[in-house]
Amino acid sequence: MIEQVFERVLFACRWLLAPFYAALGIGIVVLLVKLFQELAHFVLHMWSATESQIILGVLTLVDLSFTASLLIIVMFSGYENFVSKIDHTDHKDWPEWMGTIDFTGLKLKLMSSIVAISAISLLKAFMDIKATPDRELYWLVGLHMVFVVSGILMALTDRIAAGHHDK
C-alpha cells in the first residue's frame, strides 16, 4: 500500500513540469518583443545601412525565429513526453511531428537547433570580422565545434542504442 501511494505521488509529480513549459511560453513572448525591437531598428536604418549591416539584421531575425522554434519544440514535445498527451483532434493545422517525437528525437532536434543558432552567431561575427576581437572569434568557433561534435556523438549514441535494442 505504501508503495502504491508513493508511486501515485511520484507519477503526479510530472505535473510539476507544467509551469516550466508555461514559462517557456512567456519566453516566446519576450522573444517576440525583441523581434519587434530588432525589426523596427532594421527597417528604420535600412536606407543608410551597408550590405553587411542588412545581412546582420536578417541573421538576427533568423536567430530569433530559430530560438522561438526551439522553445516550441521543447514546450510541446516535453509536455507530451513527460506530462500529458494533448488532444489535438480539434486542431486542423496540428503539425504532424507534434506528438510523435520521442525523447531521442527531441534531443536531436534540440541539438540541431542549437547548432543552427550557434552557426548563425558565428556567421554574424564573421560578417563583422573587423569589429570582432580574435579572442571572441576563437570562442565562437570553439563552442560551435563543441556543439557540432556533441550533436554527432548524441546521434551516434542513439543510433547504437537503437541498434542494440533491435536485437
Rank of each mutant, 00 (worst) to 15 (best):
F76G: 00
H91Q: 15
V83K: 04
N81H: 06
H88A: 06
G105T: 06
E136I: 15
A131M: 15
L110F: 11
M75P: 01
I86H: 08
L59M: 12
F76L: 08
F76R: 03
A116M: 14
E136N: 13
L106T: 08
D128G: 07
A125Y: 05
D93T: 11
G99I: 00
A119C: 11
A131D: 15
A116C: 13
K92F: 12
A131F: 10
N81I: 02
W97T: 04
P133K: 09
L143F: 06
S150W: 07
G142N: 10
G57C: 07
W94R: 14
V83P: 02
L108Y: 05
H88S: 07
L61G: 09
V141M: 15
I129G: 02
L123T: 13
D128E: 14
L108G: 05
D134Q: 13
I117A: 07
M111F: 12
I152C: 11
F66Q: 00
L64V: 06
V148L: 13
L122E: 00
S150L: 11
I117P: 04
M75S: 08
A68L: 12
V141C: 12
D134I: 14
H88L: 06
G57Y: 02
I152R: 11
S65Q: 15
I73V: 12
A68H: 01
G78V: 00
L71Y: 02
H91S: 12
W94S: 11
W139A: 07
Y138R: 08
